[in-house]
Design a binder for these strands. Structure first.
Length: 448
DNA sequence: TCTGGGGTCCTAGGACCC
DNA sequence: TCTGGGGTCCTAGGACCC
């Protein structure tokens, strides 16, 4: 059948209660006991509950407070040691790479392997032996961590296979048996069907994948949208040709923080934004990348969440610009009642080299009357976010710089959005000034 | 003490261009 | 003067995943 491999050549591995398993491995006293790893503060949530803790009802994404209520005295609540998880994860991923050059790591504890690309015996017996052997090697190499393996003709079938037989499971779905496995399952067990989609489907009587199979493409698209609808239509028929892709470029980098108590003080909010921007920028620089869009995420005391973003003419990776753009975005948000969470992100990423090329031919700015002399060497240090004065245009701030020119937006902290102009870097009528005074955002807010 | 932190993808509307 | 599509970019929000 079109869209389905004729053999079960994709493997999915999911490590069982991974964080908790590493803790139990490293602390023998925790073995056999309920262990909950996650945020331990007042607003923490559970990352991983050991199977012993799951027996009491502890679950991932549950508030830690709720997990404490459910679990008996003696349950270990741990904050998590991500370096240890990361090292253990690498050991496992290296084992997978011995199976095939095509390994797609989805997260620290999950990966797909294209077994067909690894030249394996893809008979059911061969695959079963391979899966069994892999599980044994993982357990030995990690010192006790176990995983569940699913093998099928597509990523979806492999993932469903590992899901159906965990923990410590192994399920091979032979080519041709897909629909028999799929159709009795609740739609919620399909990857991509969450609470919202589940409710919508349920409302029209679709509870199992078999029910889904009976619906027309048109109905499904009308119900959940074009992309999701056609995806579900195909999934119900086990049509999934997504390849196993080893490395994917990151598309965004972000950092966010939930505060133990809601913040109201503007100075404190600004400090937090700076701290978040520093973290994001450190990672951008480590990866040698930069991005054009800066996003501020904002969660109010009542959990309503909004984002504000601004796309800059050129990619940025410096703390100053990211901080200032994010701080500016904060100015437009009503903070009444307090802030539960702040986040700062940078997206539209490009590598440094690509970034320069991009800026060269895609800078959406018309060069102004004074022809910038690109050949002229940069005689002065300009950095995005810097305040400047211009003889004709008045006060502004540096939006982007590079390639012998500087882009200025004439929009000071106390002035409304103004025009954008690009000048040669040595334009004498452009004069650096003092850093902006962000206390001005209060004025900005009351005026809007 | 309800509801973390890091992501991806999709949708929809408006601006703008051809 | 009115009416028109298509395409891209940007912004905001939502669903989902681990």
């Amino acid at each position: 059948m079109q869209g389905m491999r004729s053999e079960a050549g994709v493997l999915h591995l999911d490590l069982d209660a991974f964080f908790a398993a590493v803790e139990q491995r490293d602390k023998p006293s925790l073995r056999g006991k309920p262990v909950v790893v996650g945020g331990t503060g007042g607003r923490g949530v559970v990352s991983t509950a050991s199977y012993e803790a799951r027996a009491y009802g502890a679950r991932s994404a549950m508030s830690t407070a709720e997990a404490r209520r459910r679990c008996p005295p003696g349950t270990a609540f741990l904050g998590g040691r991500f370096a240890a998880y990361s090292v253990t994860s690498r050991v496992v991923m290296d084992l997978l790479r011995e199976l095939s050059p095509l390994v797609e790591q989805v997260s620290v504890d999950e990966a797909y392997v294209d077994l067909a690309a690894g030249g394996h015996d893809l008979s059911v017996e061969g695959l079963t032996a391979l899966g069994r052997d892999l599980k044994v090697r993982i357990h030995a190499a990690t010192g006790g961590v176990r995983g569940s393996v699913g093998i099928g003709s597509s990523k979806t079938m492999a993932k469903i296979g590992s899901e159906l037989d965990k923990p410590d499971g192994l399920l091979v779905v032979p080519a041709g048996a897909e629909l028999d496995v799929l159709h009795p399952l609740p739609v919620r067990s399909l990857p991509g069907v969450g609470p919202a989609t589940g409710d919508r489907l349920s409302a029209v009587g679709v509870r199992t994948v078999g029910d889904l199979h009976e619906r027309s493409l048109t109905d499904l698209v009308a119900l959940v949208g074009q992309a999701h609808g056609s995806g579900l239509f195909r999934l119900a028929r086990a049509l999934d040709e997504r390849p196993v892709v080893p490395e994917r470029e990151a598309k965004s980098v972000s950092a966010e923080r939930t505060y133990a108590t809601d913040l109201t003080d503007l100075g404190r909010l600004q400090n937090e934004i700076r701290w978040l921007a520093d973290r994001v920028v450190a990672r951008l620089q480590k990866e040698g990348t930069a991005g054009r869009t800066v996003t501020l995420k904002f969660r109010r005391y009542d959990f309503t969440t909004l984002t504000r973003s601004q796309t800059l003419p050129q990619p940025v990776d410096d703390a100053r610009t990211v901080t200032e753009v994010a701080t500016r975005l904060l100015g437009g948000i009503d903070r009444t009642g307090g802030v539960r969470l702040l986040g700062v992100g940078v997206s539209g990423l490009a590598t440094y080299v690509q970034g320069d090329l991009f800026a060269e031919d895609a800078a959406p700015l018309v060069l102004e009357d004074e022809e910038p002399d690109v050949a002229e060497p940069e005689s002065r240090t300009w950095y995005p976010g810097q305040d400047v004065a211009h003889a004709d245009m008045g006060a502004g701030w540096v939006w982007g710089s590079g390639l012998g020119r500087v882009t200025v937006r004439f929009e000071g902290p106390r002035t409304p959005p103004g025009p954008v102009r690009t000048y040669a870097v040595d334009d004498p009528s452009l004069v650096p000034a003092e850093p902006p005074d962000w206390r001005g955002t209060e004025d900005q807010k009351s005026r809007s």
